[in-house]
Amino acid sequence: MSDIKTINADEAYQMVKENKCNLIDIRELNELELTGKVEGANHIPMGNLEVLLDPHSDVYKNGQIDKDKEVVLFCAGGIRSEMSVKSLTDKGFKNISHIEGGFGSISNSSFKIV
């Protein structure tokens, strides 16, 4: 999927540190309960992404997502987040990427797991 913007965990960490992105964990709730959450990440399960990432949704209205920043998705291993970026890009979303290797690579980076 060559039209998918892919970044690594270190690049994502730097973006979060510089407050330049919305980090979104698209794993299911039971996955977060088993492995932990990434500190500072928003949780929006994959099945709810299209609805909740709509600019008119409550997550934008409540300031949970900043529409002026890049949206960075991650899942457990990178497959679902890559598919989600492709799907959302096809629907007209811009400024969206995913973390290669997902939570697996995040857990071996500077991100704090809580």
Rank of each mutant, 00 (worst) to 15 (best):
D68S: 15
N95K: 07
H98L: 01
H56V: 12
G101A: 15
N62R: 13
K69H: 05
H56T: 11
A41S: 14
G104V: 06
K91N: 12
M15W: 15
V51D: 04
S109D: 14
G77D: 09
S87T: 00
Y13N: 05
R27K: 11
H56P: 00
I24R: 11
G63H: 13
S84H: 13
D3R: 13
Y60W: 15
S107V: 14
K20Q: 14
N95M: 03
L32T: 05
E70A: 00
G101Y: 08
M46F: 12
S110N: 10
S2W: 06
V59K: 11
K94R: 08
C21Q: 01
C75L: 05
G36T: 05
D10Q: 13
S87V: 04
E18N: 15
S110C: 09
E100T: 10
G101M: 08
Q64D: 12
D90V: 02
P45R: 07
L53D: 09
I106S: 00
I79D: 12
E31R: 05
S81M: 12
G63A: 00
D66R: 01
G102I: 03
G78W: 05
V59H: 02
N48T: 11
I96M: 06
F93K: 08
S109A: 15
S105W: 02
I44E: 00
L88R: 10
S105N: 15
L34S: 05
E100Y: 04
A9G: 10
K94F: 08
I7M: 07
E70F: 08
R80H: 12
V85R: 03
I26K: 01
E50D: 06
E33K: 15
A12K: 06
V85F: 12
T89N: 01
N62Q: 14
K91P: 04
V72M: 00
V114D: 11
L34C: 11
N108M: 08
P45A: 11
S110E: 14
H98A: 07
K20E: 14
S110W: 05
V71M: 04
C75Q: 02
D66K: 02
S2Q: 14
M15E: 15
N42G: 03
L29V: 12
K17C: 07
V85D: 01
V72R: 04
C75P: 11
R80P: 09
S97R: 01
